[in-house]
C-alpha cells in the first residue's frame, strides 16, 4: 500500500482521487450487473449522466472556489434557476436574440456572485446568512420577472435557434464534455497557477497570516464568490440545453449535490484545500448515482436522502482527518 502511495503518478493525482475513480468505475459495474437492462440500454444512461454532469459540474466548480476560502454558498441552485428563467423570459417574451439571452443569464449569475462576495468579504455578514437571503431573493426575483411561468429554451428542432443544443452534442460528439473539460482545466489553472488561486487557498487556510503579509484579503475573498456566480450562470445554460424547461420555485436540491461533489472530492469545508479533479470525479459519481437510482425505479426521494448522507459522511471524514492532523 505504501509503495502505491509513493508512486509519482499517484502522488500527482492524489491517492484519494484514485480511490474515487475506482469507486466510480465500481459503481458503474455494479449498476450494469445489478440493474436489469442497465447495460443493455446502451449509451442512454451514459448520456443522461452526462447531461447531469454538465450543469452540476459547473455548479460544483463554482462552489469549490467559495469553499476554498472557508465560506459557503448554497444559493447556487436557485440562482441557477433564476438565470435560466430570466434568460428564458427574455427569449420567449421579449424575443431577444438567443446569444443575448445567454449573456443575460450568465450576467445574472455574476451579479449574485458580486453581491454575495461583497457582503461576506467587506461587510462581514456570515456566509450562510447571505446564502439564505440570496436564495430567497433569487427565487422571488425569478418568479416576479417571469410572472411565475415556466420558461422553455430552444429544442434542436427549432428552425432559428436549433443550434443551441449543439453545446451538448453534435451528431453524437459530446461537445458539452469538451467544454466542461476545458472549463475544469481553466479552473484548475486559476486555482493552482494564478495569484487569485494562491491568495484564495492561503486565505482560506489562515486569513490573518495572509492579511499580515500585506495582501488585500477582502478583494480576493470576494473574487471567489464572483467566480462562483459566473460559473453558476454558465451552469444555467447547460441546464436548459439539456432539459429545455425550467420552472420557478425549484433548484434547492442541486445545492447539496454540488457541495457533495465538491467535498467528496477532497475540498475541505474548513478552507484552504481544494481539488478541481476531485470535484469533477465527485460530480460524476453523484450524477451516475442519481441516474442509477432513477433506473432502479426509485424516486427522487431516495436520491435526496442518499445525497444528504453522503455530505454528512464526507464532511465528518474531513473534520476527523483535520482533527487527527492537529
Amino acid at each position: 500500500m505504501e509503495k502505491i502511495k509513493q508512486n509519482p503518478i499517484v502522488k500527482k493525482i492524489g491517492f484519494n482521487r484514485i480511490i474515487l475513480i475506482c469507486v466510480l468505475i465500481l459503481m458503474y459495474v455494479a449498476f450494469c450487473v445489478g440493474i436489469k437492462g442497465f447495460a443493455a440500454a446502451g449509451t442512454k444512461h451514459l448520456l443522461n449522466t452526462m447531461n447531469y454532469v454538465y450543469f452540476l459540474g459547473f455548479l460544483s466548480l463554482g462552489v469549490t472556489f467559495v469553499i476554498a476560502t472557508g465560506g459557503i454558498d448554497f444559493s447556487i441552485g436557485p440562482v441557477m434557476f433564476c438565470c435560466a428563467l430570466v434568460g428564458g423570459y427574455c427569449l420567449n417574451s421579449y424575443k431577444m436574440p438567443l446569444v443575448a439571452d445567454i449573456i443575460i443569464a450568465i450576467v445574472i449569475g455574476l451579479v449574485f456572485g458580486i453581491f454575495n462576495g461583497y457582503m461576506v468579504a467587506y461587510q462581514k455578514v456570515p456566509a450562510f446568512i447571505i446564502s439564505m437571503a440570496s436564495m430567497n431573493i433569487a427565487k422571488g426575483a425569478a418568479a416576479v420577472f417571469t410572472k411565475t411561468q415556466s420558461q422553455s429554451w430552444p429544442l434542436s428542432t427549432d428552425p432559428v435557434n436549433g443550434w443551441f443544443r449543439n453545446i451538448i452534442s453534435v451528431n453524437g460528439f459530446p461537445v458539452g464534455l469538451v467544454i466542461f473539460a476545458i472549463a475544469a482545466v481553466i479552473c484548475g489553472i486559476i486555482l493552482y497557477n494564478t495569484k487569485m488561486g494562491r491568495y484564495i487557498l492561503c486565505l482560506g487556510s489562515n486569513r490573518e497570516a495572509v492579511r499580515l503579509s500585506g495582501v488585500n484579503t477582502k478583494k480576493w475573498e470576494m473574487s471567489a464568490y464572483v467566480m462562483c456566480g459566473l460559473l453558476t450562470g454558465i451552469a444555467a445554460i447547460f441546464f436548459v440545453a439539456a432539459y429545455t424547461t425550467v420552472q420557478p420555485g425549484y433548484g434547492d436540491q442541486y445545492n447539496n449535490e454540488a457541495i457533495a461533489g465538491c467535498v467528496m472530492g477532497g475540498t475541505s469545508m474548513v478552507g484552504g484545500l481544494a481539488s478541481i479533479l476531485g470535484t469533477v470525479i465527485g460530480v460524476f459519481i453523484i450524477s451516475l448515482l442519481q441516474e442509477g437510482i432513477l433506473a432502479l425505479g426509485l424516486g427522487k426521494d431516495i436520491q435526496l436522502i442518499v445525497t444528504g448522507i453522503i455530505v454528512i459522511v464526507a464532511v465528518y471524514a474531513d473534520v476527523t482527518a483535520r482533527r487527527r492532523k492537529n
Partner: peptide, 8 residues
C-alpha cells in the same frame, strides 16, 4: 444535509 434527508 438533514434538510435533504427529511425532504427525501
Amino acid at each position: 444535509s438533514t434538510c435533504m434527508i427529511t425532504r427525501g
